[in-house]
């Protein structure tokens, strides 16, 4: 096997392992899902949403719910490796560490996308907007891709602190702000029936975030995990 297919193999195995652990334990995804739904309900009452307000705020609420729920998944994904020193085992293998990063990002993206796939119909129902739109799905994938790649990087960082997973939101939210702004605006545009061309800058910004954060993971993940 040459180097690159070896790399992809490692990536795939990390991804598969995460999915398998989740499938057998079912401890991360249900929590994320219920939490996201709770956020939707909390905001409804906290903001006293009237039908007129709902239309304007739906895109923002969707992303706040996704961002909060993702944080739980991201923490879970690294704390899983801390338990029983699974991380040490992973690091003892000759596997390329950035491959571990990409595998973990991919599994995190899968979980958060699944949450989004449940949230979109729920939002369509509760906020009287059709959110089942292929273009919106693309924005969700791009937004969550950037969010989880940055999140996986920072979760690996925060798990090494004394405070463990408590730290992640403080590190992640301010840094993820451009992703959230672009995702919310692109979503708002799509729901408002704007043409694809008008949303171009937001989509490009999301693509740029994806590339930059994946590159940061590729270059820095090795450094984060060395002990």
């Amino acid at each position: 096997m040459n180097g690159f297919s070896n790399y992809l193999h490692t990536l795939w195995q990390v991804f598969r392992k995460d999915l398998q652990v989740e499938w057998r334990g079912r401890q991360g995804l249900p929590v994320m899902l219920v939490f996201a739904l709770l956020v939707v309900f909390l905001f409804n009452f906290a903001l006293q949403l009237t039908p007129a307000l709902q239309a304007g705020l739906a895109s923002g609420l969707l992303w706040v719910a996704l961002a909060f729920a993702s944080t739980l998944g991201l923490n879970r994904s690294v704390s899983l490796e801390r338990e029983n020193n699974a991380l040490d085992g992973l690091l003892l293998t000759p596997a390329d560490r950035s491959a571990i990063f990409f595998g973990k990002t991919l599994s995190n993206l899968t979980f958060t996308t699944l949450v989004a796939l449940v949230l979109l119909p729920v939002f369509s129902l509760f906020y009287q907007q059709n959110m089942l739109n292929p273009r919106l799905l693309l924005v969700v994938l791009l937004g969550l891709g950037a969010y989880t790649s940055l999140g996986t990087l920072l979760a690996a960082l925060s798990i090494q602190t004394r405070t463990r997973d408590v730290l992640l939101p403080v590190l992640l939210y301010p840094l993820a702000l451009p992703v959230l702004i672009a995702a919310v605006e692109a979503t708002r545009g799509i729901l408002g029936g704007q043409a694809w061309g008008e949303l171009q800058s937001w989509i490009l910004l999301l693509v740029a975030c994806n590339i930059l954060f994946l590159a940061a993971g590729l270059l820095l993940f090795d450094t984060i995990l060395e002990e």
């Binding site: 940055l150 990087l153 920072l154 960082l157 090494q160 590190l171 840094l175 993820a176 702000l177 451009p178 702004i181 672009a182 605006e185 800058s201 937001w202 910004l205 740029a208 975030c209 930059l212 954060f213 940061a216 820095l220 450094t223 984060i224 060395e226």
Partner: peptide, 25 residues
């Protein structure tokens, strides 16, 4: 030092993005 360096580097990447996105907004 090590994790602080990583965080300082990642931060410098996102700050211009934040500025750009808010200006676009």
């Amino acid at each position: 030092a090590r994790l602080g360096a990583v965080f300082a580097i990642v931060s410098v990447i996102t700050v211009p993005l934040t500025f750009f996105s808010i200006r676009l907004y």
